[in-house]
Design a binder for these strands. Structure first.
Length: 968
RNA sequence: GCCGCUAUGGCGGAAUUGGUAGACGCGCUGGAUUCAAAAUCCAGUUCCAUUGGAGUGUGGGUUCGAUUCCCACUGGCGGUACCA
């Protein structure tokens, strides 16, 4: 038998596939363990070395649990609906289903190459009609339910109708789009359409006109998490806010439960914090202000009702309809001008320049506590979406209000005395109230309660909890997604497609382009027009399929339900979920939402989908390309500079030898930045800088290249750079290398296949684990993989002699050898549980080195070692296991048990410290008493040398730990 | 700004949760083997000083003893941002 990694990989991968070694049994007698990886979107570029990090980690856990006798569910599937495949189709004419099938096959092949133990018979694919039938079914259920705040759960819409028939909206505590007041009589008088519209106000999947993120370039609306810095996450296109009629999911109904549930799950603090942030709960009060000369009131939300006596003006969001009604004749022009200005400002403008702007409406509100007359302004710093879209402004205790008051010359009334809290900022909730009537002398927290009590007593408001989270916009004007299972009848009443008619599949189309907000599906006339009415033409976002997929794996071929009751009762939830932190907010939050909904309607037995979540760290690649940017210096000069890829325009920079300024558009090329991609050839592993030679710039210019035009500009401007000369006299620039996320776009992706082909899958797996803690970000570097390869060869060498013959002896292992084995068993078992895979690998190395030193070849020691390494190096372990005569696959062989007796030490080596500094070590029997150790240590000649001429103040002896002499 | 994570040799990282800092691996140095190279094996490798000292981003503190706990900073990474 030879150490031929390529042959071993091939042999055993083939065997596992043919024998379905990793098939999950429907054996409910054994305890279950569910290890799940976030399924990938199968992009055209395949896996890079960053992907497998999590897959390998979860695979190790799956194999370990399997060997421990758990019935392990470890599936993999594909999130195959989504924008990129559609965009690719538009660009190339290849149908998304075709490109998806090709990419999926490639991913599967790459995963098999890594020796991952997935049960492929349970694989799911979100664009498969047999799968999305159930995505549509679930959304249909969401549509058929409303949220009862009294009961704290989702209830069928039929219950709501019953309530409306008897009580109208009275006593209805429902999550709703807007507060409505309808009596039972009025409800009874409504026709179908009116009722449908009314119910829409309460459905958990509902249609409404609201401001949404519209992306012109993609021709679709986007969810908040698909927008980064005012641009689309996919494609980096500008996004604007537009009022549109869209489907949404009422996630706000679940905000409180999504928050509370975080206490019951094992997620990292960082991840919990992100979710908490996103949900954004804040407790305060809703206060009604009268408006002078108007019937209606101005409602505001504040977390600081205590500062109400310092409210010297009100601000409302420019978008509110109220603005128009409040504006006086004299102020009309000013307000109209301001509204026009706001209309021109994009999200991007707002973010990049944070200016103080606003306009006075001419109207006045009346302070409900002291009747003070306060002017009402509009300003863009007040957001229409948060709270009521209006605030009482207290310039004495809020930075933004202060800036506004300063600019518009508005009075400031100090109401909180913060002299006792030096360093406290305006917003900190500390200090004593003054200038505040009945609140005077109170501390802020007390005053908040007192002010709220008074406001409630006067009927001028009530306590309120506000959330930052917005309802989830759930329709897309795209082709490649699940069609909404809705048909509008002749009266335009939306009706759910009955279950027996699901799935609603996509029509075949030639051209998927969305035209000005109209879904491409609208052009599929035959498909749209059904005997029952017109089909909804919007599709669902990619998250629709991914937020419940973990349930489908439990019962992937069920035709009767998305998951059978028996299956979900057995598998319950995911024990360990592994995936990238980039999905920390959206994906996890949305699947928690859907899970809670399914819990409410009795379809799942657990309240949370994922017990424990592990975010693997990103493996960065060196971004070995640079950009040309233009630095506009403070003196108005423009200088070309080299910058990293992540520097955005407008960034202030200080460049040595040039000066300070900020980055501007490269007008000569009309692009934002100019990428230089040709430097990738340079090996930049482990370097912090690399040399860009002038000659390579010239060469690149000659290439047939999409960026060729840019290179000319670069050469023209190259003179501005500080070229240095190397030993051979060639001019070069010293450029820094930055680490960044691997992606095809950045030309820094490393393909795992190449590494597996060269070193074998086992080596690749162990090397990725050896890189460091799995949850930490780290740069990819191939240096060091040789060390792991050498280790595997040495490990192999324990079993197989120089003549490629098995050289294992049946002789009993020595106590020393068995100690090495059992130390290893303990270390690896504990560390896998801790998900500390890097230390497992080094434990294997240590044990191997020690056993080699002892020339150990005893079966008693080596046979269990094979079972230990099996989760890490499955191919090599399987080969050795069979060679040793093992029955069946090593991956079903029992995990070795620790025998503590071998770990007991006769002696303990005590560190002997003087004033805390360790100077020497001494051996004493492990069971020596404190006094014995102290006596023995004092008697030692070397110790006496240290003690000579010194006064011993104290001796600390901790048995089994250390000895410390405190001397002076 | 706010939130979270993080900082240890030339590099990736380890340290039983307050008890021998630098495990393991890379790299480097020297040696063996070889005609030679690769591969392999052996020894060394935190820094400074020929004995001894210093040392886990910085400054303080608690302790017999601190990489670990507390306080105040600084840098890096990630998230988020007129959220009232």
């Amino acid at each position: 038998m030879k150490f031929d990694v390529q042959a071993l990989d091939k042999k055993w991968q083939q065997y596992w596939k043919e024998n379905k070694t990793y098939a999950t049994a429907d054996d409910t007698s054994r305890p279950k363990f569910y290890v799940l990886d976030m399924f990938p979107y199968p992009s055209g570029s395949g896996l890079h070395v960053g992907h497998p990090l999590g897959y390998i980690g979860s695979d190790i856990v799956a194999r370990y649990k399997r060997q421990q006798g758990f019935n392990v569910l470890h599936p993999m599937g594909f999130d195959s609906f989504g924008l990129p495949a559609e965009q690719y189709a538009i660009d190339t004419g290849v149908h998304p289903s075709e490109s998806t099938a090709i990419n999926t096959a490639r991913y599967r092949e790459q995963m098999d190459t890594l020796g991952l133990s997935f049960d492929w018979d349970r694989s799911v694919n979100t664009s498969d009609p047999n799968y999305f039938k159930w995505t549509q079914w679930i959304i249909g259920q969401v549509f058929e339910h409303w949220y009862d705040r009294d009961a704290g759960l989702a209830r069928p819409v039929s219950d709501l109708v019953a309530h409306l028939e008897t009580h109208g909206t009275r006593q209805l505590q429902a999550a709703q789009t807007e507060g409505l007041d309808v009596s039972a009589e009025e409800f009874a008088a409504m026709d179908e359409k009116q009722r449908s519209d009314l119910l829409m106000n309460y459905r958990l999947a509902f249609r409404s006109v609201s401001y949404v993120n519209w992306c012109e370039a993609l021709g679709t609306v986007l969810a908040n998490d698909e927008v980064k810095d005012g641009r689309s996450e996919r494609g980096n296109h500008p996004v604007e806010q537009r009022p549109m009629l869209q489907w949404s999911l009422r996630i706000t109904a679940y905000a409180e439960r999504l928050l509370a549930g975080l206490d019951t799950v094992d997620y990292s603090e960082g991840l919990k914090a992100q979710q908490i942030n996103w949900i954004g709960k804040s407790t305060g009060a809703l206060v009604h202000f009268d408006i002078e000369g108007h019937q209606e009131q101005l409602d505001i939300f504040t977390t600081r009702p205590d500062t109400i006596f310092g409210a010297t003006f009100m601000v409302i969001a420019p978008e509110l309809e109220l603005v128009d009604r409040l504006t006086t004749l004299e102020q009309r022009k000013e307000i109209d001008d301001y509204l026009a200005y706001v209309g021109r400002r994009s999200e991007l403008d707002r973010m990049s320049e944070n200016k103080v702007t606003g306009a006075f409406t001419g109207a006045y509100a009346l302070n409900p506590l002291n009747g003070a007359r306060v002017p009402i302004y509009i300003a863009e710093y007040v957001l229409k979406d948060y709270g009521t879209g209006a605030i009482m402004a207290v310039p004495s205790d809020d930075d933004r209000d202060k800036r506004f008051a300063d600019k518009f010359g508005i009075e400031v009334i100090d109401v909180v005395d913060k002299r006792d809290y030096p360093g406290a900022t305006l917003k900190d909730k500390v200090g004593k109230l003054f200038n505040s009537d009945f609140l005077n002398g109170m501390d802020v927290p007390e005053a908040i309660a007192a002010a709220t009590d008074r406001i409630e007593a006067l009927g001028r408001g009530e306590r309120q909890v506000n959330f930052r989270i917005r309802d989830l916009v759930f329709s897309r004007q795209r082709y490649w997604g699940e069609p909404w299972p809705i048909i509008y009848d002749a009266d335009d009443v939306p009706r759910l497609v009955p279950e027996d008619q699901l799935p609603v599949t996509l029509p075949e189309m030639e051209d998927f382009r969305a035209v000005s907000g109209a879904s491409p599906l609208e052009r599929a006339e035959q498909w749209v027009n059904t005997p029952d009415g017109r089909r909804e033409t919007d599709t669902m976002p990619a998250t629709a399929g991914s937020n419940w997929y973990y349930l489908r794996y439990m019962d992937p071929h069920d035709d009767e339900a998305f998951v059978s009751k028996e299956s979900v009762d057995y598998w319950q939830d995911v024990d360990l979920y592994v995936g990238g932190a980039e999905h920390a907010v959206s994906h996890i939050l949305y699947s928690r939402l859907v899970h809670k909904f399914l819990f409410d309607i009795g379809k799942v037995p657990t309240r949370e989908p994922y017990k424990k979540l592990l975010n693997q760290g990103m493996i960065g690649g060196p971004i070995s390309y640079v950009h040309l940017g233009i630095l506009l210096t403070d003196d108005g000069q423009r200088h070309p500079i080299w910058i990293g890829s992540d520097v955005a325009e407008g960034t202030p920079l200080a460049v040595a030898g040039i000066g300070t300024g900020y980055l501007v558009l490269d007008e000569s090329t009309g692009t934002r930045l100019t990428p230089l991609r040709f430097v990738t050839e340079t090996s930049v592993n482990n370097e912090t800088s690399f040399r860009l030679y002038h000659s390579s710039v010239e060469e690149a210019q000659k290439l047939e290249h999409q960026d060729a035009a840019y290179f000319r500009t670069i050469l023209q401007q190259a003179g501005a750079f500080a070229w240095e000369t190397d030993k051979e006299g060639r001019p070069y620039l010293e450029l820094s290398v930055e680490q960044g996320k691997m992606s095809k776009r950045k030309y820094n992706a490393v393909n795992p296949d190449d590494i597996c082909a060269r070193y074998g899958a086992d080596c690749f797996r162990m090397y990725e684990m050896f890189l460091g803690p799995i949850d930490q970000a780290k740069p990819w570097s191939v240096s060091g993989i040789d060390g792991v390869y050498r280790f595997l060869r040495r490990f192999w060498g324990l079993y197989v002699g120089t003549g490629d013959q098995l050289s294992v002896s049946e002789e009993a292992g020595s106590r020393e050898e068995l100690k090495i084995l059992h130390t290893l068993i303990k270390k690896v078992s504990v560390d896998i549980e801790k998900l500390s895979f890097n230390t497992c690998v080094s434990a294997f190395m240590v044990a191997t080195n020690e056993l080699l030193k002892l020339h150990c070849n005893k079966r008693e020691v080596l046979e269990p070692a094979v079972r230990l390494i099996a989760p890490f190096a499955p191919h090599l372990a399987e080969e050795l296991h069979r060679a040793l005569g093992g029955e069946g696959s090593v991956h079903h062989a029992a995990w070795p048990a620790v025998e503590e007796e071998y770990l007991v030490e006769d002696n303990f080596t005590y560190p002997i410290a003087f004033n805390g500094k360790t100077r020497l070590t001494l051996d004493f029997p492990a069971d020596a008493t404190k006094a014995e150790v102290e006596q023995g240590a004092r008697a030692h000649t070397q110790v006496q040398g240290y003690l000579e001429g010194k006064h011993i103040r104290k001796v600390i002896v901790v048995p089994g730990r250390m000895v410390n002499f405190v001397i002076g």
